[in-house]
Amino acid sequence: MKDNPIMRLAVRWNIPFMLIFALYTQAHGELGPGGGFQSGVIVAAAFILYGLVFGGAEMRRVVPRWFTDLLGAVGVLIYAGAGVYAMAMGYEFLDHAALMPSNPGGAEPWGMTIVEYGVGITVFGVMMTIFNEITEGTNPEDNEPTDDSADTEYGS
């Protein structure tokens, strides 16, 4: 599809808007509709669109595989890290009051923001990993038997 100029143009023009929309969704996660999960999907969709048109290899040149794989884990670590930090400070797990003990109510949005960014990063990483898994070189299949009748017999 990368030889189709309309496609190329459309994709190139669309991707920046998608990314901006993703950031908007991310930023308004705790107040309006949206949040980390949706934003992560949108970011990933932008790159996957790129990959669909220009090919998986080209996409992996832009965002290397190791990077997206890493993000999948890092995002959750951010999320869990916020919780563990609270625990270490003597609060319950994910009790964001730990971030600002003087003002527990004000700390809550901060905590939620951190968590949402964690979620967004993870979702992006995982979506990319799934896409990579599907498009990266498929193994030559062999013709081993796939039914398991060979494992059964009637008595002896």
């Binding site: 670590l77 919780g83 319950e92």
Partner: peptide, 13 residues
Amino acid sequence: ALIVVTPLVIGLL
């Protein structure tokens, strides 16, 4: 919480 969170975090690491 720890009994669940620990394997999760270490698993990510």
